[in-house]
Design a protein around this nucleic acid. Structure first.
Length: 209
DNA sequence: CATTCGATCGAC
DNA sequence: TCGATCGAATGA
């Protein structure tokens, strides 16, 4: 039995560690300690959380984990360090937004310790954002948002919330066939049955190969 | 400087 | 299955 499907939110969630505040608002913003944990765990813990940009809000329903220098599908594979992926080497809780295929942007959240390049790609949001490119388009996210601190209480942030009721499904990542044995690893996670999860992935059996 | 390719998407 | 579309990465 794999060590996945951890109910990470059951453990001490810093955002809920009884502060003097209550109700909703900036105090629900996920703190850096949420992100500065194992990427695999953060990828699953983000499911069900609310991604906010200004007045726009979506529920995160699909993510992918990029595990670091050994991960051949990662932009930081082999410790590659370029202007583009620089924020992956920075502190957790910052946005890594990059331009892809000449027309889309993709949003990641940086995880783990500063200096170790890992991140989680946000792939879909409920409602209206089926796929990472569409998600950024719908939320108005571009290169301007690259590097922003998601924990600073600004217009771009992720808010806490209860664990999702849905079952968390694991599956291989998308578009990384070039990554040899890393392509088949179950590093994608999504909420079972959610209509906004990427199309190809929904109808299909998770572990087929 | 030239060339290749991509953590995508939606139409066919 | 394929074309759109162009910046980032790589190599000459």
């Amino acid at each position: 039995m794999a060590l996945v499907l951890i109910k990470s939110d059951e453990r001490p969630d810093p955002a809920r560690a009884g502060g003097p505040q209550s109700a909703s608002g900036p105090q629900d913003v996920l703190p850096r300690s949420f992100y500065q944990r194992p990427t695999l765990l953060v990828a699953q813990a983000l499911l069900g959380k609310t991604l906010v940009h200004g007045d726009l809000r979506v529920r995160i329903v699909e993510t992918e984990a990029y595990l670091g220098p050994d991960d051949l599908a990662s932009h930081a594979a082999g410790w590659r360090r370029t202007p583009r992926n620089e924020v992956m080497y920075g502190p957790a809780g910052h946005a890594y937004v990059y331009f892809i295929y000449g027309m889309y942007f993709c949003l990641n959240v940086v995880t783990e310790d500063e200096g170790f390049p890992t991140a989680v790609l946000i792939r879909a949001g409920d409602p209206g954002a089926r796929g990472p490119g569409v998600l950024c388009r719908e939320l108005g996210l571009t290169r301007e948002h690259n590097g922003l601190d998601l924990t600073a209480g600004g217009s771009l942030r992720i808010e806490a919330g209860p664990p999702p009721r849905e079952k968390v499904v694991e599956a291989p990542r998308v578009g990384v066939d070039y990554a040899a044995d890393w392509a088949a690893k179950p590093l994608r996670f999504y909420l079972d049955g959610n209509p906004w999860v990427s199309r190809k992935l929904r109808g299909r059996q998770p572990d087929v190969r």
